[in-house]
Design a protein around this nucleic acid. Structure first.
Length: 206
DNA sequence: GCTGTGATCGCCT
DNA sequence: GGCGATCACAGCA
């Protein structure tokens, strides 16, 4: 599998989000260990007009600066006092568009992911593979993604990369739904079908 | 499988 | 000072 080509990063968030389904997110840990998973669920945050976006109305702050960066920049933010979420900027520099990666199917480093997920918290049952990375906070925990990776250039990073679908693989079947967990006065943006899910994929979030 | 609830803190107003 | 692009667990079906 090859890295995403230049023209793909430049798609609008609306087009980039479904295009990421089936691509592989790769994380190289400081130890050199490689973790990877196939993207099965994404959400698009289209630009300043998108009232559900952190950059709604053109808001530009230290926190969301990566949304405005070169296409293919990681935007990682902290929320709910305990979770990180991983996004990729797209479209063009100085325009705040990004795609949130909501869940992946783990393919490499699964034991390490389970250790990262279970670290610290006591659990009654062992985590199933399909729960390891099903949700934006979960996948960041399982792949050791935090704010230190905010601003990473995914073309050149030695820690994070996105590989395209294998050549010749057919397009995955995709279902569109409204985005999850939006609050505040976002008007019709709450209903816009900007969430993209690999149809009936067992590793999507619930 | 679904629903309700509490946890927890950096960032923006 | 208030809230959020969430999660885990309990309780119920």
């Amino acid at each position: 599998m090859l890295p995403l080509s230049e023209r793909i990063w430049k798609l609008s968030a609306r087009d980039f989000a479904p295009r990421l389904i089936g691509c592989t997110l790769v994380r190289i840990l400081p130890t050199g260990e490689r973790l990877a998973g196939v993207i099965v669920e994404t959400e698009a945050y289209t630009g300043p007009e998108d009232l559900a976006s952190h950059a709604a109305g053109g808001r530009r702050t230290a926190r969301n600066e990566s949304m405005w960066a070169e296409p293919g920049t990681a935007y990682v933010y902290f929320t709910y006092g305990m979770h990180f979420c991983f996004n990729v900027s797209c479209f063009r520099k100085d325009h705040p568009a990004a795609v949130l990666v909501r869940s992946v199917e783990p393919t490499e480093g699964i034991d390490t992911m389970r250790r990262l997920r279970e670290g610290g918290t006591l659990r009654k049952r062992a985590l199933r593979d399909r729960d390891l990375c099903a949700g934006p906070g979960r996948l960041c925990r399982a792949m050791a993604i935090d704010r230190s990776l905010d601003g990473e250039d995914l073309h050149r990073s030695s820690q994070l990369a996105i590989l395209d679908r294998p050549a010749g693989q057919s397009e995955p079947p995709i279902v569109r739904t409204p985005r999850i967990g939006l609050g505040g006065e976002v008007g019709f943006w709450k209903d816009e079908p900007l969430r993209f899910v690999w149809a009936d994929h067992p590793f999507r979030s619930r």
